[in-house]
């Protein structure tokens, strides 16, 4: 179901499939769908997002256990945002905010098309964060496991 919702956000379902999916939503799924849109909003307007994002949404996002498989990248900006929202419940809580940027700081569609989203690969990146902690003098002052044990998303993805 999550994958379907993600595909819907991506615009990858045809109208008939989309109708069927939307009308079959239970309470939880409807809320999730609502959440994804809130997140999409948040990614478009990071300034305003914390205040608007409902606590239940954050909880629902955090309870989400799996990483969605990456889809074919889209070049349209809006779709990229939506895709990001659907695939990246983690992005909100894991990183607070996240943006695709070219070295100049602007979104370049061709680069977006090429780039696999960071958040989809967060499990691998978490390995890097853990590997890094071992060398951090700052972590060394207490226990290098503080960040690791507190990380909701550690080892989430496979």
């Amino acid at each position: 179901m999550n994958e379907k919702i993600s595909m819907l956000m991506d615009g990858e379902l045809d109208d008939e499939e989309a109708d069927r999916l939307l009308s079959g939503f239970n309470q939880g799924e409807a809320e999730k769908w609502h959440c994804y849109h809130l997140i999409a909003e948040a990614i478009r307007d990071p300034e305003g997002f914390r205040a608007d994002l409902h606590v239940d949404c954050i909880n629902a996002i955090e309870a989400e256990p799996t990483v969605l498989a990456p889809h074919r990248s889209k070049t349209q900006k809006a779709k990229v945002y939506a895709w990001s929202a659907a695939a990246s419940f983690a992005a909100v809580a894991l990183v607070g905010w996240m943006a695709l940027q070219s070295p100049q700081g602007t979104v370049v569609p061709s680069q977006v098309a090429q780039a696999v989203r960071l958040n989809v690969l967060k499990s691998k990146l978490n390995d890097y964060v853990t590997a890094h902690q071992e060398f951090s003098p700052e972590s060394e002052m207490m226990t290098s496991n503080i960040r690791t044990v507190s990380d909701t998303y550690q080892e989430n993805g496979r």
Partner: peptide, 10 residues
């Protein structure tokens, strides 16, 4: 595929 971007956690 290459990754490009920034992420932040704490």
């Amino acid at each position: 595929r290459p990754m490009e971007g920034v992420a932040k956690q704490g």
